[in-house]
């Protein structure tokens, strides 16, 4: 069963479009790697401002160096990978890779929660609290909130830079961008929060990635849509 195709004659250009064309001016087009650099700069600024404002964790010097660098490196690698997937399309395309971005966001959210629950290290200088459910929830909510605040500016900037570039897959790309910025928030918590309980690291710090991924999935389709 086949139906032959025929290219129909182009409809005439409408008045509104013709009017806009009369005022056509050159525009600077999107440069994805520059967008990655801008979002990275925004994330670094957010982290720096909050670290300076809130102070570095008190047990920083006492923590095992390998754990500190390895865990911090994982946060930064998560940010870099997800920002690349969410903002840089494959060669020859305009729309970023929405499916890998969404899959990456899911894996990052699960991975950072699992890593927090698994790879905890503590010292005599770390902050220890009574491990009740209420305490866990309260502390986790505070840290997840701080991680989300850290992520907000780079996430909004990334969404703005994507305006017009994601007619489809906006929520998927938004989840990737959100998770990337959530990983930046996780890095801030890694530098600031002296709590080392595995539930806190998993739910509070890893949870920031999940919250930001969901936030990105909601915000990016709205902020990046073509007006």
């Amino acid at each position: 069963m086949t139906v032959d195709r025929q290219d129909l004659p182009a409809p005439p250009i409408g008045d509104l479009l013709a009017a806009e064309l009369r005022e056509l001016a050159p525009v600077a087009t999107r440069r994805p790697w520059r967008d990655v650099a801008a979002v990275t700069a925004a994330a670094a600024t957010s982290i720096a401002v909050l670290v300076v404002t809130l102070a570095v964790r008190r047990d920083l010097d006492a923590l095992p160096r390998a754990w500190l660098i390895g865990y911090g490196g994982a946060w930064l690698a998560g940010f870099a990978l997800l920002a690349w997937l969410s903002l840089v399309p494959r060669a020859g395309a305009v729309v970023p890779r929405w499916l890998p971005a969404a899959v990456g966001a899911g894996l990052a959210a699960v991975g950072f929660v699992a890593a927090g629950l698994t790879f905890d290290r503590t010292t005599a200088l770390s902050l220890v609290y009574a491990p009740t459910t209420a305490n866990h929830l309260l502390r986790a909510a505070a840290c997840a909130g701080l991680g989300t605040i850290t992520a907000l500016v780079p996430m909004l900037l990334g969404a703005r830079l994507l305006r017009g570039a994601v007619p489809v897959g906006g929520a998927a790309i938004g989840s990737g961008l959100g998770a990337a910025c959530g990983a930046a928030g996780g890095f801030l918590l890694h530098l600031h929060c002296p709590i080392t309980h595995p539930i806190h690291l998993g739910v509070g710090h890893g949870g920031a990635v999940l919250i930001c991924a969901l936030l990105g999935a909601l915000l990016v389709p709205v902020l990046a849509r073509i007006r």
Binding site: L16, L17, L21, T29, R31, A93, V94, V168
Partner: peptide, 28 residues
């Protein structure tokens, strides 16, 4: 078709130089 090209026009800054605009315009 007019709405699509209006959107393309208004979002032309989102285009990445060197990319094939076809799939993007069809997606719009």
């Amino acid at each position: 078709v007019q709405v699509t090209f209006l959107k393309v026009h208004r979002a032309r800054a989102a285009y990445v130089r060197g990319a094939d605009p076809g799939p993007w315009i069809f997606a719009i």
